[in-house]
Nucleic acid binder design. Structure first.
Lengths: 249, 249
DNA sequence: CGGCACGTTGAGTGGAATCAAGAAGTGTGG
DNA sequence: CCACACTTCTTGATTCCACTCAACGTGCCG
């Protein structure tokens, strides 16, 4: 019995692990959650899962790999809204708003489980605490977007980049995908530039400055932080919005 | 009977009117919603309802007047995340995340109803469709923040300002607080500048350019749009994310 | 070997921030 | 009624940073 419980815990999805930071889910609720993650599919790197202005779009739960959500402009410009790592939702808003307001693409090869509005509504009606958990996850995502907005609107490029890499580091550590000083980061400089509201050229120079100051290095898809305290200080990073604490519900 | 129904409809809160765009709420659900809006208070212009890093903060539903949510930086900078008008939530995220990630202040004198986490959880458990409606409202708010992010990250100041005023126009029209070409706008140029990621000086010049192009004028707290089509075109405004359609649930 | 994606560097320009100051409107008290 | 303070708005001059354009390096893969 104890052995089988351990086995079940091992099989827990990244999403369940993430939600565990907010609400201590009961077995029944966990089962509901896993039931949402049956229809898993694999997507190639670069594949577009969702396109802005699409109506009646699906949403996904990301199990493996990295994804990116972004909006495109008429002049060819692109703004990356956020990157998603295992345990994150992809395109959840397009289930509720009738038209997808953004695009989602796979950065690396990914595995993601499709969910539709009916399933979601059903799960919420059956397990109301799951609804709270979902509201929490959405709120946390929004808090990250808000922090991103502050960075682009009011932080200088160097601090902005620092903040971005520190946030990513924290998120990956929570998902057990980073060590204390480094993590794999499959984002190229075009993606990073579109996330940080800079040109790729200027981002490159910004990265160089971070390197020259002995704070961090991005090389061959790996971020190495040489001075965690220094980088965090430069970023004025306040981790409160990530809400990483023991469950409160 | 018919008369009393009309009277009830007249008393409907701005929030109920807004949610009606998404879900056709039943009488029982409407009653739950109104029950959330009992503890109403008045706040002076400039009063701070919520401060960032505050723990266990309350949330509010705005009934009358304008509010602003923002984050402050160490260097004295401030980024306005969004402005709220009647029917909008204030600080809803601080109910779910354990620490408020942003501040909220009254722009004009306002009336707002306090809600706490227990009430919310209770209402959600009793009326699950209200949970969907809430998720919709939060998603719509997030979509607005995302659009804001795109504006600051990738739009030129002129288009950014145009987009801002068009979005506000649409929101106010939905709340029946605007005519086809004008609306009252109690935001001064410091607030606007902090919202648009510009200095007040540069915002002033941007407003002048909008005026000189015959697109719109902001004077004495009133926005007058001289050329709706032109302003919308300059802004590359796509209204999809506001999700203003007949109810789907 | 050539083609392509990605990264790096240099030189020049334009536009937003900064610094400085004044005008216009609003409220208060003598 | 006017003097005064205060907020908000407006304009000019200057500086600096991020964008643009252009080019080259580097590694990978067919």
């Amino acid at each position: 019995m104890h052995g089988s419980q351990d086995a079940a815990a091992d099989r827990r999805s990244p999403l369940a692990l993430k939600l565990a930071a907010f609400v201590r889910l009961k077995a029944e609720e966990l089962a509901q959650l896993e039931r949402l993650q049956r229809r898993c599919r694999r997507f190639d790197a670069g594949a577009e899962l969702l396109h802005e202005t699409e109506v009646g779009a699906k949403a996904f739960i990301l199990e493996e790999g990295w994804a990116v959500s972004y909006k495109s402009l008429a002049d060819g410009g692109r703004q990356v809204v956020d990157f998603q790592i295992p345990g994150d939702f992809l395109g959840l808003r397009s289930l509720l708003l009738r038209m997808s307001d953004h695009s989602v693409a796979a950065v690396t090869e990914i595995v993601a489980c499709e969910i539709d509005a009916a399933e979601l509504q059903n799960a919420l009606a059956t397990a109301p605490r799951l609804g709270m958990a979902l509201l929490w996850a959405v709120s946390r995502d929004e808090a990250m977007v808000v922090e991103h907005l502050v960075g682009i609107g009011r932080r200088a490029p160097l601090a902005r980049a620092a903040h971005f890499f520190v946030e990513l580091h924290q998120r990956l550590q929570l998902a057990q995908l980073a060590t204390a000083t480094s993590y794999a980061c499959p984002l190229n400089q075009y993606l990073l530039a579109d996330a940080l509201g800079l040109t790729a050229i200027h981002l490159n120079r910004t990265l160089r400055r971070l390197r020259e100051r002995g704070l961090m290095t991005l090389k061959a898809g790996t971020v190495t932080i040489h001075d965690v305290a220094g980088l965090t200080a430069l970023a004025e990073f306040e981790s409160g919005y990530l809400d990483q604490a023991p469950p409160s519900v």
